[in-house]
Design a protein around this nucleic acid. Structure first.
Length: 914
RNA sequence: GCCGACUUAGCUCAGUGGUAGAGCACUCGCUUCACACGCGAUAGGUCAGAAGUUCAAAUCUUCUAGUCGGCACCA
């Protein structure tokens, strides 16, 4: 068989994905076992406007590893994929396009036409992210792909809204909300990010007091009270000044009135505990319509709530003739200017502070009094908290710190603002009559029936995108509120097994799925939550569009292959941030090539026609004796042991979501055990055309490829298909009728009975001897071309091992003769070494450099001495001997004796050199 | 302000009580018939600092320093 010298990932990627999908391998229906257990994962739906980034690639890889792992074990697996309609992002994107192409605003064309445009945009460009996801090789069921705006998911949204409203968990009310003046919509607290203000200032404004008869000294000719504010423009909406009731400086002013400058209003001076006397001047201007704290104060004191801004943060008529139409920052300058003219500006001081920004467009948020829809969170929160307290669910991986953070957040949860002033999204299912009376219903018909009125108007707002996301684990499985019959997918796959996502949406999404799942299905949506780390750039900085330091997964796929990228991502520790390095991917690209070439070697001397018999399984499946004609030689016993140990450990690691451990186990099994030692030991047999040996090595390789498949699906499929003899007979029983593919092959769980400690120990001696001889050659500067005799002395048992593997030692140590004996009988001009149970000598007449040899021996002695010293210290410590576990003490004693023996031998050798 | 994480070889990172590890980079040698995306052999760390618990600490506790993150407040 002609196999190219280097692995070409692109070819393998093109070869397999389409076939996998077309053959239905990704769907749960491929599983023919009626008793199969299910395993399900729903993907966090990426934004329809999004493009693939490393964070996605990381999460998708992990979910796919889990899914492929379980699928190969015969689970009925569903890896459900879908896309989020992403209200604000999408609306902005289409608005921009509309402006560019038609020079129109959404308002110009109207709601219906605009929504139609968005759908068109979605059909044309919305598939981008899913096209990119196909390249990741993820085994998601595309036939079940969902979109949050499709009808069945929208029906679920309406159902949930109506039920929550009917039970009083959703309400409409006037509150101070986070308003983005650019996007012109309200935002939830979670969509607002605090950022340091560039040049924060605190402005001290003097407010004249009306009809004061107090005794306070008056510097500027009239009685005033000074307030400090960071937003002077809001003074136009002040309806009181507040002081702390215990503040002696101001006690006498409580109840007096202020003549509010720049307006013709008089406002009261009130006392409220909320005011901290130490901050600023201890007197606070109160603007109930433009500050959440002030709103509460206003509520307590029955103050007027004067709205002075429009929805684009320009001043409205209530701000006064002089200010109307000005932007908030223009108004700020103007207010300051006017105060200065009036001699009422006391001072301006620098003030470090943070300001709330719109997460999306970075505009400074304006707290605004507004009529919106809210979800009351107290009862919802309790559902989630109770699940955590009573059952410890969901389990977070890593548990620290996420469990605590999640719980703490729930405990302090405020109501959730769910209405958005957008056109793209789920329109709120509330209808109004001409008097503004509201009817909440699943449809217009139902609303009209409920209210007995026709000609109702639907609420213009849509719901927060996260409202529909919160229903994702069950809305995607067919739930839309019908209670008489459970949809089959919901029955089969809910609750899901694990959720994999980034820590940024634990609150936005994870917590809300838990709440809605408990509320509407009565069951948790998932058991486990795996929180991935953040992929940083090579300098440890967050990747961001503005910094343009992002690494595009598609570029990496192109350069190093999908499998190498997947290994890199899965190889990062669960939950830990890590800096992206191309070198890392490069090393996994090399790894793929290494395996490719291992396979290539195994097949070089095996024609298809010569290997038509079923592959021998090296006893892997049933502990059967080794194949006839093949001796159960050390290498075979050893690699079988290593493979089974690796399989057990890989399964164990995956069960704990320790992907990096699994990656490292596989890497070292393939490279060190299989390639460096097993292939090298078997080389002569293989090259001699020994069919039994080829059969064995291919059996091991075939099993190992299955172990690797969840991580490197393309490479393993490509190689597995090339293996003579593979077919659907290798499948897990649940897939026996499916077309042959490694992705349905039985996943090796490993058999503890096949772990052969004796073989591992013997092999350690063999490796020890070969390594020591190589060390001698290298340190003594002896050319690889030179062949020499190797003398080995040791007990009868280990001598038998060396005798049985003489050919291998000759080859790997590049020796031409092995002399075995009870003791060494070599000339003085020999280089020597020791291992635990043998002595090694290489006679080097004319080649030896005695100084070098002395140095070499001394080096070995020094190393052993250091260890000996430490052991001695420990063992002469009475406390240690008394308190440490006896087997520990015994092990150290044995090691100490061993070292003493070796040192003795080495010293002897040293003396012999003269 | 509150909570948390991190600090281990030149770099990027594993390692939760018992002899400090990997990949890359570095040094030396190699056209050894699978692979130079390779092979072989070295070198490189008082595990941020200090104190404590323990027979035993990279690992547990406390403090300090630095880096990063989350939450809250901010008139």
């Amino acid at each position: 068989m002609e196999i190219p010298k280097a692995y070409d990932p692109k070819q393998a990627e093109e070869n397999h994905y389409q076939r996998w999908e077309a053959s239905g391998f990704f769907t749960p229906e491929i599983n023919q076992d009626p008793n199969a257990e299910k395993y399900s994962i729903v993907i966090p739906p990426p934004n329809v406007t999004g493009s693939l980034h490393m964070g996605h690639a990381l999460q998708h890889t992990i979910m796919d590893v889990l899914t492929r792992w379980k699928r190969m074990q015969g689970y009925r697996t569903l890896f459900l994929v879908g896309v989020d309609h992403a209200g604000i992002s999408t609306q902005l994107m289409v608005t921009r396009q509309l402006k560019k192409e038609e020079h129109k605003t959404p308002q110009d064309i109207g709601r219906e036409a605009f929504t139609e445009k968005v759908w068109q945009w979605k059909d044309k460009y919305g598939g981008e992210i899913t096209r990119q996801m196909r390249r990741e090789g993820i085994s998601v069921d595309w036939s079940r792909e969902r979109f949050t705006m499709e009808e069945s998911l929208s029906a679920a949204v309406r159902e949930v809204f109506v039920r929550l409203y009917d039970e009083g968990w959703i309400y409409r009310g006037t509150r101070i909300v986070n308003w983005c003046p650019k996007d012109k919509t309200v935002l939830s607290d979670l969509e607002v990010k605090e950022e340091k203000a560039k040049d924060g200032k605190l402005y001290y404004l003097q407010y004249p007091v009306v009809s004061s008869n107090g005794k306070r000294p008056v510097e500027s000719g009239f009685q005033h009270i000074t307030v400090a504010t960071t937003r002077p423009e809001t003074m136009l909406g002040d309806t009181a000044v507040a002081v702390n009731p215990d503040d002696d400086r101001y006690k006498y002013l409580i109840g007096k009135k202020i003549a509010l400058p720049l307006t013709n209003r008089e406002i009261p001076i009130i006392a409220d505990e909320y005011v901290e006397s130490e901050f600023g001047t201890g007197a606070v201007k109160i603007t109930p319509a433009h500050d959440p704290n002030d709103w509460e104060v206003g509520d307590r004191h029955g103050l007027e709530k004067l709205v002075i801004m429009n929805d684009d943060a320009t001043m409205n008529a209530a701000a006064g003739e002089e200010f109307v139409g000005l932007d908030r920052y223009e108004a700020r300058s103007k207010v300051i200017e006017r105060f200065e003219e009036l001699g009422l500006l006391e001072k301006i001081v620098d003030h470090e502070m943070t300001l709330p920004h719109c997460e999306r467009c970075k505009t400074v948020i304006e707290p605004l009094l507004s009529l919106q829809w809210f979800v009351r969170m107290d009862e919802m929160r309790d559902l989630a908290l109770e699940l955590m307290e009573k059952q410890g669910l969901p389990r977070f991986f890593p548990e620290v710190p996420h469990r605590k953070v999640y719980t703490a957040w729930l405990e302090n949860l405020k109501d959730w603002t769910i209405s958005r002033q957008l056109w793209w999204g789920h329109q709120i299912p509330a209808w109004y009559d001409s008097d503004g009376n509201v009817t909440v219903a699943r449809s217009r018909e139902e609303a009209e029936e409920k209210s007995g009125i026709t000609g109702l108007t639907q609420d213009a707002d849509v719901l927060d995108t996260w409202f529909s996301s919160a229903l994702w684990p069950f809305s995607t499985l067919g739930w839309s509120g019908e209670t008489d019959e459970t949809p089959p997918d919901l029955q089969a796959f809910y609750p899901t097994d694990v959720l994999v996502t980034g820590r940024d949406i634990i609150f936005l999404w994870v917590s809300r799925m838990v709440m809605t799942g408990m509320k509407f299905i009565g069951k948790k949506p998932f058991d486990d939550v795996v929180i991935t780390g953040t992929v940083l750039d090579k300098n440890g900085q967050r990747m961001s569009k503005t910094k343009a330091n992002g690494v595009d997964p598609l570029d990496v796929f192109e350069k190093f292959g999908v499998d190498a990228t997947r290994m890199t991502l899965a190889g990062s520790a669960t939950g830990a941030d890590f800096a992206w390095r191309d070198e890392k991917v490069e090393s996994y690209r090399n790894f793929a090539n290494k395996i490719w070439n291992a396979m290539r070697f195994c097949l070089l001397n095996v024609g298809n026609e010569r290997l038509e018999f079923p592959l021998q399984r090296a006893g892997l499946d049933n502990g059967a004796p080794p194949p006839e004609g093949g001796t159960p030689n050390l290498a075979d016993r050893w690699i079988t042991s290593r493979l089974n140990k690796t399989a057990i450990d890989v399964n164990r690691a995956l069960a704990k979501y320790e992907f990096h451990t699994a990656v490292s186990l596989l890497y070292h099994f393939f490279w060190d055990d299989f390639c460096d030692w097993y292939i090298e030991l078997k080389k002569d047999e293989i090259n001699a055309g020994d069919i039994a040996a080829s059969s064995n090595i291919l059996s091991i390789l075939e099993q190992a490829l299955r172990l690797l498949h969840p991580f490197m699906p393309y490479l393993t499929e490509e190689l597995w298909q090339k293996l003579p003899g593979t077919g659907s007979g290798f499948h897990n029983a649940a897939y026996k009728d499916a077309d042959a593919t490694i992705m349905l092959a039985d996943f090796p769980l490993g058999d503890a009975a096949l772990i052969d400690e004796a073989a591992e120990a013997e092999m350690a001696s063999l490796i020890g001897v070969i390594s020591k001889v190589r060390n001698i050659r290298s340190e003594m500067n002896i050319s690889p071309a030179v062949r020499f005799t190797v003398h080995i002395a040791g007990g009868a048992e280990i001598r038998a091992v060396f005798a049985a593997n003489e050919a291998q030692i000759l080859k790997l140590a590049r020796a031409d003769k092995i002399v075995l004996g009870e003791s060494l009988d070599v000339p003085k001009a020999s280089a020597k070494a020791v291992i635990a149970n043998a002595e090694i000598a290489v006679p080097l007449e004319g080649l030896i450099d005695f100084d070098k040899e002395r140095e070499r021996l001394n080096n070995q002695i020094t190393k052993l001495d250091t260890e000996h010293e430490r052991l001695n210290g420990q063992l002469s410590n009475a406390d240690f001997v008394q308190k440490a576990p006896p087997e520990k003490v015994e092990a150290l004693r044995e090691r100490k004796t061993e070292i003493e023996q070796q040192v003795k031998t080495l010293n002897h050798n040293l003396e012999a050199l003269g």
